[in-house]
Each structure stands twice: as C-alpha cells, then as structure tokens.
C-alpha cells in the first residue's frame, strides 16, 4: 500500500516536527551558551558557543552522580526482570481465581501514583534505618516497576506456543527446564523490550531519590537536575549541560533498541 501525503498530513507532520525538535535543539544550544548570552539573546541562534557549562559541571560530583545513576538503573533492571519474568510467565499460562486476583492487584499497583508510594516507604525505610542507601533505593524502584513490567511481559509469554512446551515435556524436561530453555528464548524480544523500558524509567526516576537520600552527595543525575531546576536563579547553561550529559546514555540505549521499542511497546501498551 502506498499512501501519499496530502496537505493536511504534511501540516500535521510539520507541527509535530517543530514540537519535538525544538526542545531537543534548545537543550543542546543552551548548553553551549554562556550565562550572559542566555539573558540577552535567549531566543536566538547567534551566539558564541562555549563549553564553559560543561567544564564547570564536570567534576567528581558529576561522576559520582553518574555512578549512582548507573548503579540504580542497572540494579533496578536486573531486580525487576528477576521477579517479573517468572511472575509474567505464571500469569500467562495459568488461569483461575489466583491468577485473576494477581492480575487485579498488579493493575491497581501499576496505576498507583508514585507520590502515594513515597509517603509510607519513607516511614518504613526510616523505621528500619535503611534510608540514605543505594540498595534501598533500588529495592523501592524495583517494587515500583514490577507490577508494570509483569503486565507488559505477560502478552509476550502468552504468544509462545504451548505445543513447544509440550514437546519439551514429552522429552522429559521439567517445568523450570522447559521455561528456561524453551519459553524464555522465544520470548526474548519481550524481555529485551521490557528491560530497556525499566532501565529508561529507573534512569529518570527522581522522586524516591530526592526523598530517600538524605544528602545530595548520593543523588543520581536525574535527582541533581530536579534539585537544580527548583533552585532560585537557575543556571540554565549549566542545567542544560547536565541534561545533555544525563541524556547521552539514553541516546545510546535508544539507538541500540529503537526497533525493539517501536514494535514492542505496542504489544503490552501499558505505560
């Protein structure tokens, strides 16, 4: 089928292009401006580019935040997949009241506002004395994303033909064995898609980080941005430079997984 673009089509695409290109362009442009340029010619393209914002932002603090971001995002991705994959498989294959109860609970949990979870978790982590630790942040992020990841993974397991497993079972494979060596490889696209999405979400998470870490010294990059953007007299070039550096890993992940995201996101349609 060959659809030709009509004038309305072109108009919509032009508007969308402006809408999504301008913010990206502005992040990058502003990060190369000097603080003085921001206030005099903020809306213009003509300025003397400088890397001052980057050199100022770069230092042990930034590297520390980068390390925290990587730890949290990787830790959360591993944690979520570890719990969500078996749960999604079980919920994809079984039926009955327990499955329905589980699914209902997951739907409610995945819809819970983040701001609601943070209040009791702060209290619980406080009473257990595990605030201000990277591990407890990973645990909190993992708990936040398991319901959503499980719901997103389930359809990928449902489309794995049962006949494949039956064949495995006839050959004497246990449930665990047939899951590991038959089902999981077939559903690997789903696992990669969900893993990527969990990584992206954990990379951007900041609400738990700014509340559970008691000092900015342990903040990941996203929390640093959230802190700086709320301050009075924002240093815009510095903030945008920080935004660019925070986004570079996202660019890399995006380039590697774009096809997967484009086709896989629409499968579970849960965000």
């Amino acid at each position: 089928m060959n659809i030709k673009a009509g004038p309305v089509n072109i108009l919509i695409k032009a508007l969308l292009t402006l809408m999504y290109a301008i913010p990206i362009l502005w992040i990058v442009l502003t990060s190369f401006k000097s603080s003085a340029d921001v206030f005099t010619t903020q809306a213009s393209f003509i300025f003397k580019p400088t890397v001052a914002a980057y050199t100022e932002a770069f230092g042990p603090e930034l590297l520390g935040a980068l390390k925290q971001s990587i730890l949290i995002a990787v830790g959360t991705t591993v944690g979520v997949l570890l719990f969500a994959i078996p749960a999604a498989y079980a919920l994809a294959r079984a039926s009955g009241w327990l499955t329905n109860l589980g699914l209902g609970l997951l739907i409610v949990l995945q819809m819970m506002p983040h701001t609601t979870n943070v209040i009791p978790l702060f209290q619980i982590f406080g009473s257990w004395g595990i605030l201000d630790s990277t591990l407890s942040l990973v645990v909190a992020d993992t708990a936040l994303l398991i319901p959503w990841a499980t719901m997103l993974l389930r359809p990928f397991f449902r489309v794995v033909p049962v006949a494949l497993e039956e064949a495995g079972r006839i050959d004497g494979a246990s449930t665990l064995r047939s899951f590991w060596s038959i089902v999981l490889p077939v559903a690997r696209n789903g696992v990669f898609t969900v893993g990527t999405l969990v990584f992206l979400l954990a990379w951007g998470e900041f609400l738990y980080a700014i509340n559970f870490f008691l000092t900015p010294g342990k903040y990941p990059l996203s929390a640093l941005i959230a802190m700086q953007v709320g301050a009075f007299g924002i240093n815009w070039p510095g903030l945008m430079a920080l935004a660019v550096m925070t986004s570079i890993p996202i660019v890399i992940v995006f380039i590697c997984t774009y096809r997967l995201l484009r086709d896989g996101l629409t499968v579970g349609a849960v965000k």
């Binding site: 301008i22 502005w26 809306a43 992206l200 951007g204 903030l239 995006f254």
Partner: peptide, 27 residues
C-alpha cells in the same frame, strides 16, 4: 524516531527545557 526518543528521555530533562522555553525570556 524523534518522538519516541523524546518520550524516552527522563521527564526531568523534558520538564527542564519546557520550563526554560516557557520562561519570561524564553522562546
């Protein structure tokens, strides 16, 4: 691809640049 990329960016990044674009001296 551009739209999916913007969607994948951390909300703090998108939110910051929009705060800038909508500011008193913004675009």
């Amino acid at each position: 691809a551009l739209m999916v990329f913007v969607w994948a960016l951390p909300p703090v990044v998108n939110g910051s640049v929009w705060k800038f674009l909508l500011g008193e001296n913004g675009l």
